[in-house]
Structure formats: C-alpha cells, structure tokens
C-alpha cells in the first residue's frame, strides 16, 4: 500500500520553477532516499510533504500530495495535525535550549497531554525508540545542549517520535555527525521503518545504498529515475543517474 502519493506536483519560488511535474508513490514502512546534486529540488520536495514550504514567501504549489487518501494541499487541512503526522528531522541537530525531558515532552504538551505520568511514559518510550534512553536516563533534567552532536540528533528524532507520527522526513540527518554517530542513526532509522514510513535526503551515496529500500534521483527539479535502491545503484536505467552516482557528473 502506498502511504504517500505525489501527483503532478509543480512548485515555484517566484519565477524559479523548482519542482517540475513530480509524480511519486512512496510505500509504507519503507525507507525512501532522495538523492541528487545541490539545488535539484530534493529538500524542497521533502518540505512539501508536511507543508513547510508554506512558510516561504512567493512559493506557489500546484498538484497534489495525498497522504492516507487525503490531499494535504486542499483547504481546511489542519497544518498542526499534519505536522504531528509527518515529523521532520533536520541536517543540524536543533534541540530547544531546555532540558532533555522538556525537549521530548514539548510536542505532546502542545497537543494537549498534561498528565505527568503519561508525559513521562511518552518521553521514556520516545527516547528508547531513538536508542538514546540508556545514555540520558540519569540526566533527564540536564540541558539538551550539553549532549554530543550525535546524541542531540537522536534526541531530535525522539522529539519527532513523541507526537506519534506516521511519517518521518529526514533532511541529511547525519551530515554533521562523525562515523560512529552516523552508524547509530543509520541503525536507528532501519529499526524505525517497522513502525514508520521514512524519507531521507542524503548526499552520501553509500548511506542511501546501506539503508534505503527505494531511491529517487533528482536533477534540476525533475525526478529522473525512481526505483528499488539495489537496482538504481547496480543497473541504473538513465545515463544521468549513472553519471551522478559514479561521480562522472559535471
């Protein structure tokens, strides 16, 4: 079953036609990687999936993004609920300047959870899911900013999981991390796909090969090729894909 269906999507930043006739079906409980050179539209497409581009002035979007049979671009869609359902983790870990506990509890509190016991349960469950519980359980009241970069990123994943999303969007989540932290995040991502649909933007080709089930290659705002990751990286159909992934590009 497809979790996300993108149909005839065109996106303009003013006169810049940033996404051109994008059609894509993203399967449920799989990891889909978006790859391509800088400025090709992959992060832009990621941001359309929870309407983050709404915040950008002059941004015009045509077409539809259907999540669980609902077009998220029709009027009347509750954006807060959409962003609860479609969580996001960014390139640079961005914990709030508050305690570890408060970082994770922030989302559920915003969505109305007040009961302390329930909040603690959500925080513990989320930190466990993000594979950071054992490292922080003694220091939940410490500032999140005291954590290492890798820990901060896992905390941000826990924060995204705390509101019980269905889809996780990840924009180069390990590009600022060392290989050990990267390995932990990659392991975590592959575990999380059992419960969530994950879309990851990455510049690291080997990361896409290691963790993703499907890969979409973008160039100049278009999807050039989309398919099973093993196929794309072993026998790509399009010469432009081949040139990009083998480093012959440009």
């Amino acid at each position: 079953m497809n979790d996300i269906k993108i149909e005839n999507l065109n996106l303009y930043y003013g006169n810049n036609h940033a996404l051109k006739d994008v059609n894509l079906s993203i399967p449920k409980n799989e990891i889909t990687a978006f790859i391509g050179p800088s400025g090709c539209g992959k992060s832009t497409l990621l941001r359309t999936l929870n309407r983050m581009n709404d915040l950008i002035e002059d941004c015009k979007i045509l077409g539809s993004v259907i999540i669980n049979d609902e077009d998220i671009y029709t009027s009347g869609v509750d954006i807060n609920l959409l962003r609860k359902k479609v969580g996001m983790v960014f390139q640079k870990p961005n914990p709030f300047p508050m305690s570890i506990f408060e970082n994770v509890a922030f989302g559920p509190k915003t969505h109305g959870v007040k009961n302390k016991k329930q909040l603690f349960e959500i925080v513990e469950r989320s930190l466990r899911q993000a594979a950071i519980w054992d490292e922080v359980k003694e220091n939940l009241n410490k500032s999140a900013l005291s954590l290492s970069g890798g820990q901060q990123q896992r905390l941000c994943i826990a924060r995204a999981l705390a509101v019980d999303p269905e889809i996780l969007l990840m924009d180069e989540p390990t590009s600022a991390l060392d290989p050990i932290s990267t390995n932990k995040i990659e392991e975590l991502i592959t575990q999380l796909k059992e419960k969530y649909t994950i879309i990851i933007v990455t510049h690291n080709m080997q990361q896409a090969v290691r963790i993703s089930d499907n890969t979409a290659f973008f160039l100049l705002g278009e999807i050039i090729e989309y398919g099973k990751t093993e196929k794309i990286f072993a026998v790509p159909n399009d010469k432009r894909t081949e040139d990009y992934i083998t480093g012959r590009f440009g």
Partner: peptide, 9 residues
C-alpha cells in the same frame, strides 16, 4: 572507491 553501477559491475 566503493563503486556503484557500471563501475561495480
């Protein structure tokens, strides 16, 4: 080189 595509083949 961690080759892919035609390089890997």
């Amino acid at each position: 080189q961690q080759p892919v595509a035609s390089d890997l083949r």
